[in-house]
Computed example of a mutant assay.
Amino acid sequence: MSKPVSSEQTLNYKWDVCLSNMFVQSTLGLGIGIISSAIMFRRAAWPVWGGLGFGLGKAYADCNAKLKTFPPIPRELSPNDTQGKN
């Protein structure tokens, strides 16, 4: 049998995923902003900040969704369980 995972370990894992996701997505947004600024907008600063903002916003939305998920209810505690009722 496998050892049960504590809630602290689960929360730490979710935060690690959130922080790494924030770093990757904000870096990608910043890179896309720099490239679009250099190619299309004559080196204006607003595409860089816009790309960074989009990356951070996407990371925030993903992290919010990940932290709001709840583990499934065990079958023994489910209110829809009809096995023992006749």
Rank of each mutant, 00 (worst) to 15 (best):
M1I: 06
M1W: 08
S2Q: 11
K3H: 13
P4A: 15
S6D: 10
S7E: 15
S7Y: 05
E8D: 14
E8H: 03
T10D: 09
T10R: 11
L11S: 14
L11T: 15
N12G: 10
K14V: 07
K14C: 09
K14T: 05
K14W: 08
W15I: 01
W15K: 02
D16V: 09
D16S: 13
D16C: 10
C18A: 15
L19H: 03
L19G: 04
S20Y: 12
S20G: 13
N21V: 04
M22T: 05
F23M: 01
V24N: 02
Q25K: 10
Q25I: 03
S26E: 13
S26A: 14
T27V: 15
T27A: 15
T27M: 11
T27N: 08
T27G: 05
T27S: 14
T27I: 12
T27K: 01
L28D: 07
G29Q: 00
L30T: 01
L30W: 06
G31H: 04
I32S: 04
I32A: 11
G33C: 02
I34R: 07
I35A: 03
S36A: 05
S37D: 12
S37L: 09
A38E: 04
A38C: 03
A38D: 02
A38N: 01
I39Q: 00
F41P: 01
F41Q: 03
R43P: 02
R43K: 05
R43T: 00
A44M: 09
A45D: 10
W46V: 00
P47D: 11
G51F: 04
L52N: 01
L52G: 07
K58Q: 13
K58R: 03
A59R: 05
A59H: 11
Y60P: 03
A61L: 08
D62L: 15
N64M: 14
A65K: 00
K66W: 03
K68F: 07
T69D: 10
F70M: 12
F70H: 05
P71R: 00
P71F: 06
P71S: 15
P72H: 12
P72I: 15
I73H: 02
P74T: 10
R75S: 07
E76Y: 01
E76S: 13
L77E: 11
L77A: 07
L77Q: 07
S78G: 06
S78H: 04
N80R: 11
N80M: 10
N80L: 06
D81T: 08
T82E: 15
T82F: 14
T82C: 05
T82A: 12
Q83R: 05
G84T: 00
